[in-house]
Computed example of a mutant assay.
Amino acid sequence: MDASLKASFTPTGCLRASINLGNPILANKDPRSGQPVGVSVDLARAFAERLGVPLELVVLDTAGKSVDAVRQEQADIGFFAVDPLRGQEISFTGPYVLIEGFYLVRQDSPLQHSEEVDQPGLRVTVGAGSAYDLYLSREIKQAELVRAPSSPAVVETFLAQGHDVAAGVKQQLEADARRFPGLRLLPERFMVIRQAMGTPKSRGQAASDALYAFVEEMKASGFVADALWRHAIQGAAVAPAGR
C-alpha cells in the first residue's frame, strides 16, 4: 500500500483494531494468557502486517461499544455485523463469516416456531446495541424488546427477569442452554448475520476499497476458514465472495 493509504489507516502510527468479546464466534479471551484470540484478532493482525505497522487491540465487551470506538475514531478498523444504521458512518467490507440468530425459550413455553414470537405481551431479551437488537428493533412490531447489558448476559437477564424469549447467536444460546436446564431453541433461525470489517467513512473511499479487497483475499485464500478451524468455531460459515 502506498504511504497515503497507509496513513489513512494509521493516524496514530499504529493500527487500532476494535475487538468485541461479546461475540464468542469472533473473539474470546485465552484462558491461559488472558489475551484476546479469535478470527477477528487473526484478521486484525494480518492487516497490520500488510500495512507494516504495530497492532493495538481496543478490546471491548459489547458490539455497541465496538461500533462506537470506530464511529468515534478511537479505533481504525473493527469487526461488526453489517447493518444500515451502522453503515451511516462506517464503510463495511463484504462479510467474512455468516452467523445465525436464533430464539431460546423455556421448555414449557407454548412457542414452537420463530414466526410466533412477535405477539403482544411477549418480552424478548436482546443484547443492547447488538446486531439482533438493531434488526429486531426494525422487525418486531408487537412484542416488547428488553435490552440486556451485553450479548453474553442475555440468557441470565431473560431468566432473572422472567422474560418470554431470548435472542442471540445460536452457539451462545446453545452453550447457555447447557448451563441452565429447562431451555430449548426454536427450530428456525430468525436472521443471518453478515459479519464484516469496517473503517470510518472519513478515512476515504481508497481506504474502504483496500479493506474490502483485503477481506476478499482472506476469504479466497482460505485464511478465514483456517482461522475458524484453528479456534474450533462451529456454526459459522465462510461468507461467499462479494458483498
Rank of each mutant, 00 (worst) to 15 (best):
1 M>I: 08
2 D>Y: 10
3 A>S: 14
3 A>R: 13
4 S>K: 14
4 S>R: 15
5 L>V: 05
8 S>C: 03
12 T>A: 15
12 T>R: 15
14 C>D: 13
14 C>P: 11
16 R>C: 08
20 N>S: 10
29 K>C: 06
31 P>Q: 10
31 P>M: 12
34 G>A: 02
40 S>Q: 06
41 V>L: 02
42 D>P: 00
46 A>T: 04
49 E>D: 08
50 R>A: 10
60 L>K: 03
61 D>R: 11
64 G>R: 10
67 V>T: 09
69 A>T: 13
70 V>H: 09
70 V>I: 12
78 G>E: 00
81 A>P: 04
82 V>H: 11
86 R>G: 12
87 G>T: 13
89 E>N: 15
89 E>H: 14
96 Y>H: 11
101 G>A: 13
107 Q>R: 12
109 S>T: 13
111 L>I: 10
113 H>V: 13
115 E>P: 13
116 E>K: 09
119 Q>R: 15
120 P>R: 14
127 G>W: 02
127 G>N: 07
128 A>Q: 10
130 S>H: 13
130 S>N: 10
140 I>L: 04
144 E>V: 05
148 A>S: 01
149 P>T: 05
150 S>D: 11
151 S>G: 07
152 P>F: 00
157 T>Q: 06
159 L>I: 14
160 A>W: 13
161 Q>G: 03
165 V>G: 06
166 A>F: 10
168 G>Q: 01
169 V>K: 03
171 Q>N: 11
178 R>P: 07
182 G>L: 12
186 L>N: 06
191 M>G: 10
192 V>I: 12
195 Q>G: 05
202 S>Y: 05
202 S>N: 05
208 S>H: 09
210 A>Y: 08
210 A>P: 04
210 A>E: 15
210 A>Q: 12
212 Y>G: 02
220 A>Q: 13
220 A>G: 15
220 A>M: 14
227 A>S: 04
230 R>A: 12
232 A>G: 00
240 P>A: 07
242 G>L: 11
243 R>E: 10
